[in-house]
Simulated assay, not measured.
Amino acid sequence: MSKRTAMLLSGLCLGAIVAMLAFIYSTRGPVQASVAMPLETTAAAITPSEDEPEPTPEPEPSPTPTPTPSSKTSTPKLASQVPGGQLAAMVYDRQENKALLAEHADTVFTTASLVKLLIAFDALDKGTSSNSTVTQMLSRSDDNIASSLWVMNGGQSIVTRWAAKLGLARTKPPADPGHWGSTRTTASDMVKVYRYLMDNASDSIRSVVLTALRKATKTGADGFDQYFGIPNGIDKPWAVKQGWSCCDPTRNLHTTGLVGEEDRYIVVILTSRPSSVSWAAGSRQVTTASHMLESLLN
């Protein structure tokens, strides 16, 4: 076959193919090419088929319940007020004859000047001191008077004797007989001390001690501001015995006493913190903790 004949046959075949495609287009419409969906297309642009089941949504976690505000009778937590230290507290309602709060109430602390209550009971009971001298020791927290009565009346035996008489399970005399401020006690034992004063002490002892506690001076005999805690933190009548001491082995601040009309409540807060914490900061801590107790005192 000649080259010219081959070209003629190729042309005829190409023409036949074009004619056939034209016929198909006229009867069926254009053939569409498939298009791949771009990767950026969002899920919202995809409509699921009616035959395809909807995916089951994952269950949402239940929200954490929001704590309800504390009610007037709820029990406050005081220990957070002494970061890096310790706090024990007890509130006793003498009218209802029950404890309203007991937080670490059996934790042992150094008494500092709180032991002067036992020294006063002992001196008044034995008649070895005048009423005015005991009043001054308690109201001004006078260390010199306390030291004199401590030595005069037997030192450590004062604590041992009165702990047995009042049922103070964890109150112990100091290891050093000459250091009365290192006597050990607890918040629950201090509540028993005040219950004895109000319920079992003789009228003469009660009168002298209560008068002194109601007349607690703004500053102690050593110049320390002793109105921290109950006096500055609770807006009710009070009769208090405070305690403070340094490096025994920590810095201690205690506020204790009778609060409210007719001395209804016994309030005890014992605290200790590192000696690096200033006295002013420690006093504020105890005052704030005392103020938190007002919701319990009707």
Rank of each mutant, 00 (worst) to 15 (best):
P83F: 06
V35A: 15
L149D: 05
V91G: 12
K77W: 01
R161P: 00
L12I: 14
G85R: 11
D106S: 15
A6T: 07
D203I: 06
D235G: 03
T66G: 02
S70K: 07
L138W: 10
A45W: 00
P55C: 09
F228V: 05
A6I: 13
Q156H: 03
L12P: 01
I145C: 02
T288S: 12
S207Q: 15
V286F: 08
T160M: 03
L197G: 05
I46P: 01
D225Y: 15
H179N: 13
D142G: 03
I17H: 00
P173S: 12
S204P: 00
A19Y: 10
A187M: 10
I269Q: 08
R206E: 07
T160W: 02
V286T: 12
I266H: 07
Y25M: 13
T56A: 09
G223V: 08
M190F: 07
V134R: 03
T185R: 03
R161Q: 15
S272I: 04
A289K: 08
M292E: 15
V191H: 05
P231T: 11
A187D: 09
K236L: 15
R28T: 15
I269W: 06
Q242H: 10
S147P: 01
P69D: 05
G15D: 00
P55Q: 05
D189S: 09
Q136N: 12
R184G: 00
P69E: 09
P59K: 01
D176Q: 12
K218W: 01
G29T: 09
